[in-house]
Amino acid sequence: MTPTPAAHPGRSPIRISPLHHPHHRPRRGFLYTGTGVWTVRIVTFVALIVVWQLYASGVSRALFAAPSAILESIIELTITEATLWGAIATSMGALFAGFGLAIVVGVFIGLLMGRFRPLELVLDPYVSFLYALPTIALIPLLVIWFGIDTQLRLALVFLAGVFPVIINTMAGVKNVDGELLDVGRVTCASERQMVTTIVLPAALPFIFAGIRVALSQALVGVIVAEMTAIITGLGGMIIRFANFFQTANLFVPILAIMAVSVSLTTLLKWLERRLMPWDHRHLEEEGA
């Protein structure tokens, strides 16, 4: 601690403590540099793997898998047998179509509900209750209606995604700054022009928040359906390996789901930055 002037009356009272000096920059250690962060991460990761490997060598292969065994499984499933790619394709197949449909329909309904109060009054209870219901509870019902083929995946992804998108779009539409709407009104913009030039761009951050929630819900829905009903794709792989206690293999689809999820989230972030350059630049400016 730097002695304060009050504690040492003999010293000049106008001495500024280095912490409060206007040109003072807090000294940042190794952990705040780029290399520092990565050094720490890599060292701890390697340590983790080593401990894991040592522990696993004393346990049955059926109950626990060593990192070396998992690596073998990865090579087998991606290169030698290469069955992982087909599973990923199956799992993701209907995802984009169902998800695209959920976004288009969700934004449209959310927009109408946000702009027309009567429609909101009628639809809001249904939307709220269906949003609150975990979509996976509907899987058996959907199997009865749609079978276990592409239609089921489509319905599942759509139902998981559409409600978060509706609710967030509606919130965004109702949140549009009234002063910006005034600009449209004094400019004699039509309702369609109000929506396309003001309401939608203003609601875009909310819509993206909805899409992010929808994405994770849809992934959960697909994987659970594959594990419980369809037994194909990544979820089906997990169940089959688990049933045969192929523990090392079991880790591969799990890692693949992680990778898919991270890639889709990254893609979404990239899209967000592309579609909302003003937001991004603003944040950068504040951070500087």
């Binding site: 700054d177 009104r185 004094v186 003003w278």
Partner: peptide, 19 residues
């Protein structure tokens, strides 16, 4: 109502941040 022979300059500018 609003018409094209009138224009308004607002206190808080009210620019569209996305334009």
């Amino acid at each position: 109502g609003p018409s094209r022979d009138k224009a308004v300059v607002f206190q808080h500018f009210n620019l569209f941040p996305w334009r």
